[in-house]
Amino acid sequence: MPYEWTPEPPHAQPDWQLCLWPYRSLLRKDFVLFIGATALIVTLPLLTVLGTAILWGLLPFFALMLWGLWTALSISYKRGEVLEELTVTDSKAHLTRHNPKGGRQEWEANRYWVTVHLHPTGGPVENYITLRGGDREVEIGAFLDAQERLALYDDLRQALRLGAAP
């Protein structure tokens, strides 16, 4: 699962932290390997026109395709650089969301008034999870898939009820 409890379960401590991040199917090293393999595969047909004027006509399109692929994957990767940290102490709960463009959003509430809510339908995503406390309701883990959000919902409910990470 793309989230981690600190301290690791099963601990019966009142202070804990939960870090969530989007799943990455393409790691940085694999990103470079993918671009290299794509370049190699597309270059193979160019070998047949090596030494002819056709090569110079096809080369700009080959370069444009590689640049477009690199740019699209880079943009996708940067948009997925989200980190959410929920820190719960004996008196308060603090959620910090680190956005891809460098901004931060923060929420804080009295730990004993924080409740976890699951919205199976009607939210922006299926099994939408929100934390309610104080005067605001905030989302958590919207980038996770539906099954991961269900597991997270159960874990969060248990952790907030017992006062310790599951």
Rank of each mutant, 00 (worst) to 15 (best):
residue 6 T to K: 09
residue 6 T to R: 09
residue 7 P to A: 07
residue 8 E to V: 10
residue 9 P to V: 07
residue 11 H to G: 03
residue 14 P to N: 07
residue 15 D to W: 01
residue 15 D to E: 11
residue 15 D to V: 03
residue 16 W to F: 15
residue 16 W to H: 04
residue 18 L to H: 04
residue 19 C to W: 01
residue 21 W to F: 12
residue 25 S to F: 14
residue 25 S to Y: 14
residue 27 L to E: 15
residue 27 L to C: 13
residue 30 D to F: 05
residue 31 F to Q: 08
residue 32 V to M: 09
residue 33 L to D: 09
residue 33 L to S: 15
residue 34 F to E: 02
residue 36 G to A: 14
residue 37 A to M: 11
residue 37 A to E: 06
residue 40 L to W: 08
residue 40 L to N: 03
residue 41 I to K: 02
residue 41 I to T: 13
residue 42 V to P: 00
residue 42 V to C: 07
residue 42 V to N: 02
residue 43 T to F: 11
residue 47 L to N: 07
residue 47 L to M: 10
residue 48 T to Y: 14
residue 51 G to Y: 09
residue 53 A to M: 12
residue 53 A to Q: 10
residue 55 L to Y: 11
residue 57 G to V: 03
residue 57 G to E: 04
residue 58 L to M: 14
residue 58 L to P: 03
residue 59 L to Q: 05
residue 61 F to W: 09
residue 61 F to Q: 05
residue 63 A to Q: 05
residue 66 L to P: 01
residue 68 G to S: 12
residue 68 G to I: 01
residue 69 L to G: 04
residue 69 L to D: 03
residue 74 S to K: 15
residue 75 I to H: 10
residue 75 I to F: 11
residue 75 I to Y: 12
residue 77 Y to N: 15
residue 79 R to M: 14
residue 80 G to F: 04
residue 81 E to I: 02
residue 81 E to T: 05
residue 82 V to I: 15
residue 83 L to T: 08
residue 83 L to N: 06
residue 86 L to Y: 02
residue 86 L to S: 05
residue 89 T to I: 06
residue 89 T to K: 06
residue 90 D to A: 15
residue 91 S to I: 00
residue 91 S to Y: 04
residue 91 S to E: 09
residue 92 K to P: 00
residue 92 K to W: 04
residue 94 H to V: 00
residue 94 H to W: 05
residue 95 L to E: 02
residue 95 L to R: 05
residue 95 L to Y: 00
residue 95 L to P: 00
residue 99 N to E: 12
residue 99 N to M: 15
residue 100 P to S: 10
residue 100 P to C: 11
residue 100 P to L: 06
residue 101 K to N: 13
residue 102 G to T: 05
residue 104 R to E: 15
residue 104 R to Q: 15
residue 104 R to D: 13
residue 108 E to R: 09
residue 110 N to I: 07
residue 111 R to I: 10
residue 116 V to M: 05
residue 116 V to N: 01
residue 117 H to F: 02
residue 120 P to D: 05
residue 120 P to T: 11
residue 122 G to K: 13
residue 124 P to T: 09
residue 125 V to P: 05
residue 125 V to A: 03
residue 128 Y to T: 05
residue 129 I to Q: 00
residue 129 I to M: 03
residue 130 T to N: 09
residue 130 T to K: 08
residue 130 T to L: 06
residue 130 T to S: 14
residue 131 L to R: 01
residue 131 L to K: 03
residue 133 G to W: 00
residue 136 R to D: 15
residue 136 R to F: 07
residue 136 R to W: 08
residue 138 V to L: 12
residue 140 I to Q: 01
residue 141 G to V: 00
residue 142 A to I: 04
residue 143 F to C: 13
residue 144 L to A: 03
residue 145 D to A: 08
residue 145 D to M: 05
residue 145 D to E: 13
residue 145 D to G: 02
residue 147 Q to V: 10
residue 148 E to L: 13
residue 150 L to R: 04
residue 150 L to G: 00
residue 151 A to R: 12
residue 152 L to W: 04
residue 155 D to W: 02
residue 156 L to G: 04
residue 157 R to K: 14
residue 158 Q to C: 07
residue 161 R to K: 13
residue 161 R to C: 03
residue 162 L to E: 12
residue 165 A to E: 00
residue 165 A to F: 01
